[in-house]
Design a binder for these strands. Structure first.
Lengths: 353, 353
DNA sequence: ATAATTCGTTAAAACGTTTTCATCAAGCGT
DNA sequence: ACGCTTGATGAAAACGTTTTAACGAATTAT
């Protein structure tokens, strides 16, 4: 807008290329101090600032990265994951002088249709926040040249780069902590099967058991969704399932998120089951309300803003060729011990001791 | 990226311009059905999608609008205003097929330096979320050609367009409601003087008094900031100021936001002053916690997501020349009556009746 | 004194589109 | 038959930069 490089050139009595090179500090060409001064002065005089589009066209760089989010109803206020992620992304993009372009869709089908538009050269790369296992969109993205990273997914694929919280590691830590307290029979209350996080948390659960030399039991694993009522329902189901053989009953349950844990806590209270004395409960996410539950929830904290930061950083490195395809970045989680976990009840402790 | 219009032209055996016109459905030129079919087929075959940058360069339109936010610490998660606003903006931009470009800054000084970059042609227009009265940035924006709207400001200026909640109207409604309950002596607990909302809420306060034929009294207006402790402090100051003439004491207080109201409520409780029996309190914003305060707060609701929607809509209309400079859009507020307001205590009622 | 190098600068191509204007053939009215 | 419109297409300019390759002049080396 405003004034073009032409006016600067005319004003400074030099050629277009001279203006461009002086202003960009191009290394290969050295100009006389007088010339440079003249160019600078002219540029200032006419209020020149380069047009990003023209520059982008030739440079094939817009210093802009795209953020693709597709939820049923995208809302950064109502979805704490998106909000935190966005915060992290904005933070590093600002620091690295990148503009952030936002694409929101109501569904992944919509997103699939929009892939060509994401890859139209406007963004130098894409961050795709995609908590569900969704192959169609990934396939479509692979076919285009625009580099991208998957956020909230950590599938193993030599061609793509992913950034995610270390769901498997976190789950492993959760279960290992229960084991360290003396628990041997640990149930798992799963989330939605089509969420990438779900399979990873399940993998972490199995790994912890394996590391502890505890056999994996199908009947300790309860499918569900990432909602409180599934936690409630599954604790009931668990009590029901082992009603005839209480000595077989799990003494602890690893809930795949804090919502499920909350539901389980509610159910326990209703059944008169004391937590953690009768049964230990551990969650995942460390959502804000985890600390305020009765009792305050032991859980695994994942810092989503940090995931956002990592995503932005990795994408930029990918664009610049520093990170190669196949890179998987995991943001560490941490165990937050509160009041829903304790050693298993006495009979169990005796059996173990 | 991918394939350019050239390949399509070659593939379809037509000229560049033919491809462009057929694909864009340019009205002025009519092509033979066979030709069009050939072009479409070729485009599909080579997976052609136009390069947004090249197109933008000639069209001078990127179908992209910029969002400028500068807070001490920009965070859409921690600042409910930004988050809600962003939600609204994203909603209408998606609907209107606009990309949203986000610029965050740590301060308005930084933003001032970045104005040229905001106006580099990358965005067709800007939404500037600027709650404080800040003339420097507005002046800088005015000097450039990029159209912009101010969000969270409603200054009167023939050259600029603004979008904001109707702070003045809401404040007027708040005070008018107190008047309708029978109050005649109504105090005002103000927010930060440099916030645009503050002067408008003050104006609304004065207008309501004027409309009710009540004289404006300097000693009823308490300066402060948009924080709870200022509400606390000011209620104490109010009691102190009128300790020697209780019959002159305000019977109600209009707090310029819910935080201030919360502080006032706390102070009243500490002083053993019953709300609303001894004194009525009304807030502004209807923040989520307003309904959970003891007692639940009567307040003015402002729907910030709607402000965001209006901002996006108005900016687009401005870009398209539908809205002219000088336009001021006010998003209506609404009174939410809860339990902190009632008619003034008996002596006052007797004096009035 | 001539060739080779360096220095400071510029002309022109390129980036991938859209758009303006020109072209050519065919149909049409007179 | 002749100019005039209409219909279908293409050539070339434009958008505002960056970049490549080249230029002439001045300096240095031979």
């Amino acid at each position: 807008m405003g004034s073009s490089i032409r006016e600067v050139a005319r004003e400074a009595n030099v050629s277009l290329s001279t203006v461009s090179k002086v202003l960009n500090g191009t290394a290969d060409a050295k100009f006389a101090a007088a010339t440079r001064e003249r160019v600078f002065a002219a540029a200032r005089r006419v209020g020149y600032h380069p047009n990003a589009i023209a520059r982008g066209l030739v440079r094939k760089r817009m210093d802009t990265v795209g953020l693709v989010m597709a939820y049923d109803q995208v809302s950064v206020t109502s979805d704490p994951y998106l909000g935190a992620c966005l915060d992290g992304i904005l933070r590093v993009n600002k620091e690295r002088r990148q503009k952030t372009l936002i694409f929101t869709e109501n569904s992944w089908e919509d997103a699939l249709d929009s892939v060509p538009s994401y890859c139209d050269g406007h963004s130098d790369g894409l961050m795709v926040v995609i908590p569900r296992t969704n192959s169609a969109i990934v396939g479509a993205l692979k076919e285009r040249r625009t580099p991208f990273v998957l956020v909230g997914d950590s599938r193993e694929d030599d061609e793509i780069v992913t950034v995610d919280a270390d769901n498997e590691g976190g789950a492993r830590d959760a279960v290992a902590y229960l084991v360290s307290l003396g628990h041997r029979r640990i149930a798992a209350f799963c989330g939605n099967a089509d969420f990438a996080s779900n399979s990873q948390r399940l993998a972490g659960y199995r790994r912890a058991l394996r590391e502890a030399g505890i056999a994996y039991r199908e009947d300790f694993v309860f499918p569900g969704e990432y909602w409180a009522d599934h936690g409630h329902r599954n604790l009931c189901a668990l009590r029901e399932r082992f009603s005839d053989r209480p000595e077989q009953r799990p003494t602890a349950v690893f809930c795949f998120n804090d919502g499920i844990a909350k539901g389980a806590l509610d159910a326990a209270r209703e059944m008169g089951l004391s937590v953690p004395d009768a049964i230990s409960v551990i969650g995942f996410d460390d959502t804000p309300y985890a600390a305020t539950l009765p009792p305050p929830l032991t859980t695994i904290r994942q810092d989503i803003a940090m995931v956002g930061e990592a995503a932005a950083r990795v994408l930029l490195d990918r664009i610049n060729g520093i990170v190669a395809p196949g890179h998987r970045e995991l943001v560490p989680t941490s165990l937050v011990v509160r009041e829903t976990t304790s050693p298993p009840p006495a009979p169990e402790a005796a059996a173990n001791g």
